[in-house]
Design a protein around this nucleic acid. Structure first.
Lengths: 295, 295
DNA sequence: CCATATACCTGACTTTAGTCAGGTATTGGT
DNA sequence: ACCAATACCTGACTAAAGTCAGGTATATGG
């Protein structure tokens, strides 16, 4: 990889990431330890489940509990059981906590304003556009693709999003009952694998491969959320699925797709897939592709 | 200011600044407390004065001393007196320290690479370009303009850079001895003021105003370093100088300039200056400008 | 040569952050 | 009704970060 690009990224990390990050923290901080402010902020006016806070802030369970007790002691937060499940606890801001939250929100605004303030209108817009570009492209590095049980709620959410999307694009909707079924067991090793793509813990894409006996592996349910489209994630997902199939000894993968999924078709072609005769009777399919793979 | 722009900056701070910043820290960190790693890094292969480290890292004097003792104890750093001044101490890396520094350097590279890795060549270039744009525009918010004694070494450095630059642009060089002299005392309150622009402590620009008795205030030595040109810093410097004059009761400021300083002339015009008859016999001047000011 | 300023160091703290090994209450399956 | 799993909490720590009030050695200006 080009040394110049790496040097540029490092310079950016140093000047922007470290310095602006530290300043932002300082603004957040005021009187209260940073971790408390951050937590208070993260709870937000609508409240939040403790588990959600834990993953979003990446805190130890015990540590988070303690922080919540402190905020409760200061009368800023109240923690109670969730309605559906008594084990789950929900943190909500009290009136005082809400006031404090508004204060933090204003500080944060103030800091953002201080960055834009010395610039002319034109430069402000250029800055914001460049920030959006950086943010978007960095997302690609933040997405993690890993195996996940197909029964996991996040996996289910992805599959539902997938079904919803194709339903909107196929000629006459999409009824999963009419499509060739995929049972969960078929997507669990050694029969197959389900991969989940997550961004900061949130599901943003999925893909699966069924390892048929005495037949090429079959790729299913490749889906990428709108939020992260255009970042090469679909390609990465395909690569991973192919890798899994190849590592387990399969020498070819194949898949079927609908004529309306034109970006997907373009992706398959550019990824080395060749169109072949129909190898199944999937009612929603118009194209069938195959690609040889090697470990 | 537009709410949308502020929201975009906040999102950037959150996702890029905080998250990438934290990841970068994690890479830096390894076995040793972060503060030590940072310090070791900052000392660098060429060594550094303790005072410089203190300002660059923004650490308490006592804390920094202790960190240095720890690194010394680990055989990574040696601290000795500076050659010119025995009070000043210089930290340098030992062989072991240098090896450790290389390790940190490689980690840092590795992290930068991990951000670029999942992107295609084209996207990598776009990311780096956007990063450079963000960095450059944020610099404008980081520059601090404040009064400074004209005898300060940083002020002297700016004035020298100014002289060097005009010498290269005027028809037949620039000999300060031929120009109308400016004595230091004239740029110290209440006779006048010298403003220094700094970026993270490094001088990047200057400007001065002489508050003549019974005459308009006179602006001198407005200079902006190449490194930060095109960010509106010259305009900010002019504004500050005018403000100083106005606050002390002057109702007009004026200045002279050379015909080769075309960007400067454009700046003066766009800032509301009107060309006037020569009001002095400065041999290097071709244009004289004046502007009314009010507090 | 002396007073004063500079540049750094030391000791004695406090605060914040973070970890880990047990707990208790609730739920869901059998 | 009972057992395992889940979701969170408590107690008892350690480590890292940061602060502050004095120190000591070196320079500088009269």
């Amino acid at each position: 990889m080009d040394e110049g690009l790496i040097a540029a990224v490092r310079r950016f990390n140093r000047t922007v990431t470290q310095r602006v990050g530290a300043l932002d923290d300082e603004y957040m901080n005021r009187g209260r330890p940073l971790a408390q402010s951050r937590l208070l902020w993260e709870i937000g006016p609508d409240g939040a489940e403790v588990a959600a806070l834990r993953t979003r802030l990446g805190l130890d369970s015990g540590y988070l509990s303690r922080l919540l007790r402190t905020l409760e002691g200061d009368g800023l937060v109240s923690v109670g059981p969730a309605v559906g499940d008594g084990r789950v606890r929900v943190a909500a801001l009290t009136d005082a906590g809400r006031a404090e939250w508004v204060e933090l929100d204003e500080r944060s605004d103030e800091f953002a304003r201080s960055l834009l303030e010395p610039l002319t209108e034109r430069r402000r817009e250029r800055l914001v556009a460049a920030m959006a570009e950086v943010e978007r492209l960095l997302v690609a590095s933040m997405v993690v693709i890993e195996p996940c049980p197909p029964g996991d709620p996040r996996a289910r959410a992805c599959v539902r999003a997938y079904a919803r999307e194709v339903a909107g694009r196929f000629d006459d909707g999409f009824d999963p009952a009419l499509s060739r079924p995929v049972r969960d067991e078929e997507l669990v090793p050694p029969a197959g694998v389900f991969l989940l793509a997550t961004l900061n813990g949130e599901p943003v894409g999925c893909g699966a491969v069924k390892l048929h006996r005495d037949a090429p592996a079959e790729i299913k349910r490749v889906w990428v959320s709108d939020a992260v489209r255009g970042l090469g994630l679909g390609r990465r997902m395909l690569d991973e699925l192919e890798r899994h199939a190849a590592e387990r000894g399969w020498t070819a993968v194949r898949l079927d797709t609908n004529r309306h999924l034109i970006e997907a078709i373009a992706l398959y072609r550019s990824a080395g897939y060749r169109e072949v005769e129909a190898f199944n009777d999937e009612p929603y399919a118009h194209h069938w592709f195959c690609k040889p793979v090697a470990p």
